[in-house]
Write a protein that binds this DNA or RNA. Structure first.
Lengths: 340, 340
DNA sequence: GGCCGGTGTGAGAGCGCTCTCATGCCGTGC
DNA sequence: GCACGGCATGAGAGCGCTCTCACACCGGCC
């Protein structure tokens, strides 16, 4: 049995060539005679050689790793499988390109510091960051690190729109909401209420804008607008408030499936039936939508795809730093089920 | 403005000492005069020095990273926030000890190979693995890598029970089920049915065993036993099958909250009310339990804690390889809500 | 036949760090 | 007053790799 971790040197000795040649073969650098190449490959296989990444990145100044920073102290992260999906997309794309995924979860103030130091320390080649809020410190941390960064979700700051070096991937929230409300109109609903998510997140703002687009108004009628917080309980409370006005709405567009589920509960508590009395449309098409009773009509966004695209944009700026890629908006799709 | 990434050498020159001394200060090694130590610390701060991890791990043979391997091709990963919770616990413990979390998501055959190579390549110091199934290839991969490994969830193989070097963390599924069914008995239920999860997973098997314990039987009565698959639809179908027998059960213990949610749906479809006609108890106490209507009585397990403990056990075997830690079983707790 | 250019290979430096070992300095004890 | 032990510090090797550069070799040309 050979040594547990043979070095380049060992492989070179075994194959009767120099370290440099083995290095060339291992890295696929051209300019090695085919028969020599084969011989080296045999030695590599025989000895079970695996390159030492520390030594390699010491000289190449590339770590082969990408940091994924998730700063979502809120319960929302746990409430739906959003991040699991996104991570899978990212992981798929990264591992196809032999990059490692380093997960940095941020919970408190101290974590921000830690992440800042870590990113600035050159341990990774690039960063992926999620759903920043207004004035999120991660914005500055990313900039200070000097690392190529791709954001998930449209950043809040309007000036980013113009700064082409700041790249993000998002789904078309506005159009998704437009489709959802359009469907309600098409099915004859006339008093369509909206339950919005927290309006310090661009996704919530954009979905509200889409609602207004579909109705041809610039802002929602107060009696038809309730604020939620993306949770089931928030959705139920918002629905209850909407039902206090008369005439009652004959449809509700909720900013996500969880709030729609809450709305369903509130409607049942009021003795109203869905969709006969009130139609309900959600947003996200994650599992809770299908679990709901009745199953929710909702807007699907391809989350795993979003992760993949984030990773691939990052890869591109890693490989061609001089030409930063453009941001990407992913289309959404209405899924009609029983609730509307 | 100093160089973007000053080296030890630069700090040494700035402080007027040798590299060795700076290294000692940075690593907290004793035997440096306090005033010199202070001086060096100032230089470090002034230059913004961050140690190069590649160079460090090249000589220490420690990477400062731990791989978390998640091989769950099934939809279940997405259906509940289980992994998000666990990851958070792990991340918390690891980052408190300055270790990085490397996420390896396994989806297909090729991924197993990739993970095997990666682990064997010495890129990480240890591994955390989740919910292996019977004959899971990860078992061999972990062994072949020679890395300290901690498993999440009791492994399937009975011989592991005796092999003290194989460490796992699990919640007390059997006792949790016992509590759940005990509660149903305490509240006067007499025909208590069970909906089990896939029986190639130890968690599902253990929960069934706990059900039997509480009833004082060795196996469930066939008319009171239905198989599910940990999904909402599976739970609904199983419940429908149970209702086909008469007399109908007056209570159901479902192997997880999702199946309990499905059972709720099936009961409503049959015109039965919960808990008046039939009491329902779930398992997990993840968000879907609270979203259900009525909210589910269920068994809570501290998932984040489980992750933390996994990480801390791994840390222990990293720091004291000669004395491997023992496996840990985490207690569970019944949460009583409206459904039972 | 000597010179040139191209190609394949090897020698060697050096990435930034840790750690061993040698060195210098001090205080103590006889 | 000198030998000695202990402690703080520095010099230097070396971790495993990549990459530049020099060298050897071969064919084609004048």
């Amino acid at each position: 049995m050979p040594a547990p971790h043979p070095t380049l040197e060992a492989v070179a000795a075994h194959a009767g060539v120099s370290r440099a040649t083995v290095s060339r073969v291992v890295n696929g650098t051209p300019g090695v005679r085919p028969e020599l190449r084969e011989k080296v490959k045999r030695s590599v296989a025989e000895l079970g050689y695996v390159p030492n990444s520390a030594a390699r990145s010491l000289v190449t100044r590339r770590t082969g790793a990408v940091a994924v920073v998730i700063a979502e102290p809120e319960t929302r992260v746990f409430a739906d499988p959003f991040f699991a999906r996104q991570l899978r997309g990212i992981s798929r794309e990264l591992s196809a390109n032999d990059l490692q995924l380093l997960l940095l979860l941020v919970e408190d103030e101290a974590d921000y510091q830690r992440v800042g130091r870590y990113l600035a320390g050159g341990h990774v080649d690039g960063t992926l960051m999620f759903s920043l809020h207004a004035n999120d410190p991660l914005r500055g941390i990313a900039a200070a690190s000097g690392l190529p960064t791709v954001f998930g979700g449209r950043p809040w700051w309007p000036e980013w729109e113009r700064d082409a070096s700041l790249v993000y991937v998002d789904t078309d929230n506005r159009d998704g909401a437009r489709q959802a409300v359009g469907h309600l109109l098409d099915t004859g609903r006339r008093r369509i209420a909206v339950i919005t998510g927290p309006l310090d997140q661009t996704s919530a703002v954009d979905r509200l804008a889409g609602y207004c687009d579909a109705l041809g108004v610039t802002e929602p009628e107060p009696a038809l607008h309730a604020h939620g917080d993306f949770t089931v309980d928030g959705g139920a409370a918002a629905m209850a408030r909407l039902l206090a006005h008369s005439p009652a709405p004959d449809a509700v567009f909720a900013g996500n499936d969880l709030m729609a589920t809450g709305a369903l509960r509130a409607l049942r508590a009021h003795g109203l039936s869905v969709p006969a009395d009130v139609a309900v449309v959600g947003y996200d098409d994650l599992e809770p939508a299908a679990w709901a009773d009745p199953p929710l009509t909702t807007v699907r966004q391809d989350i795993a795809r979003m992760g993949e695209i984030m990773a691939s944009l990052l890869l591109r700026s890693l490989n061609a730093p001089e030409s930063p890629p453009a941001s990407v908006i992913i289309p959404t799709e209405l899924v009609v089920r029983a609730s509307a």
